[in-house]
Amino acid sequence: MEWVLLAGLLLAPVLARLGPAPGLGMDRDELRALQCERLALEAAVREEPGRVRPGRERGDYMDRSALRCRQDLVPPGLRPPRDEAVLSTLGAQAQALGARAVASTPRAGPPPTWLVQAHLPDPAVAEKLRVATQLALVAQGQAVSDRRPLLSPHQVEALAALPPAQAWPEACRAWAPQLGPGEALLVVLVLDRDETALHAGRCAAEGWSWLS
């Protein structure tokens, strides 16, 4: 009998999954694919009705909150890690880029009309980043155009020979004549093929500036 009790006590934490922890029902890989967030009781009752008991009118005996865990829509490994790193936080990164661009605008003069370009190794991911950044700028009340300034093949060939720190300002020099009055080009880029951190620069008539 004692052995049964001892086995029960040892197995209880494994069998009873009180939270997102590895156990019989979930291995570590599945656990890593979860995105968990802690919700205040009011938010949990509002967003998960029926699953979270509302607080009592005279208050509960303890502070309660809820831990909500969701699975990623795209399983790990389905997309290249570099792309996944950008796409999984696309909205947040686009918001941050938009905010940096708006903050870079000189206070004097009217706000610019933004043109957006994204330069990532995968063109499909770059296009999604471009769209997300455009909409983030629109959401912040900025005027945005879908137009894209071009570089000719021989300009690209010349720029490719330069280190990034020089190439982007030179590219801006080539783009500037294509920008209309009051237009500014926001360029989102990576400096290395394998990096996932995004950099941004602002190209306007007055020249190139890195956005920090």
């Binding site: 330069h119 190794p121 093949p153 690209v156 060939e157 720029l159 490719a160 880029l189």
Partner: peptide, 17 residues
């Protein structure tokens, strides 16, 4: 398509690695 090729070439050229 030309712009895509252009951008790809630019990224390939500008990336350090």
């Amino acid at each position: 398509l030309s712009r895509t090729v252009t951008l790809l070439a630019l990224v390939a050229g500008l990336c350090a690695a």
